[in-house]
Amino acid sequence: PRDVIKHPLQNSWTLWYFENDRAKNWEDNQVEIYNFDTVEDFWALVNHIKPASEIRVGTDYSLFKKGVRPMWEDPANKNGGRWLVSLEKKQRGPELNNCWLEVMLCLIGEAFDEFSDDVCGAVMNIRPKGDKIGIWTGDGTRTNSIMEIGQRIKSRLNIPAKVLIGYQLHRDLTVKNSSVIKNRHQV
């Protein structure tokens, strides 16, 4: 019967969890939690794990296409960058949970249409100074696609027009002493 068949996603995805255990090296602290490729399995996961606002400060959730590790060193990320959405501390609660869920729905639902192929994944950082959600794309030179993705992120997250979000290249982040990260694009 129709309802037994699960709804397939365009891509397979992996949810990762990062916790900074100083005894281990950074890459080993990224733990694969679960792979899924249907709507039903996505919800089974999300309904099962702690929501974003309840995981410890200093940890991350990341959702990436299967085979892409949630780090700029991965070949799929190396030449790309991220749209960065910064939240205030007081938003760590339902607002953060809704924002992260909406980003995940954009990813698994291919909300960027043909530009979805440029999307690698998204990272959610829980940090003392304020939480951040980054939506990662794989090629920092594809301006048209990057801007389209940025526009849709703003509308899906109901970010007011006057509030700008910036797109940063990963390689700009690796410049050690740079305090101010250059936004290559804004929308």
Binding site: H7, L9, Q10, V39, E102, L105, I108, E110, A111, D113
Partner: peptide
């Protein structure tokens, strides 16, 4: 090629279906 797209209302509707 074709792309499997789900809009948010459909996905949210699926959240609690058995």
């Amino acid at each position: 090629g074709t792309r499997i797209v789900y809009d948010r209302s459909f996905l949210l509707q699926m959240r609690n279906s058995p």
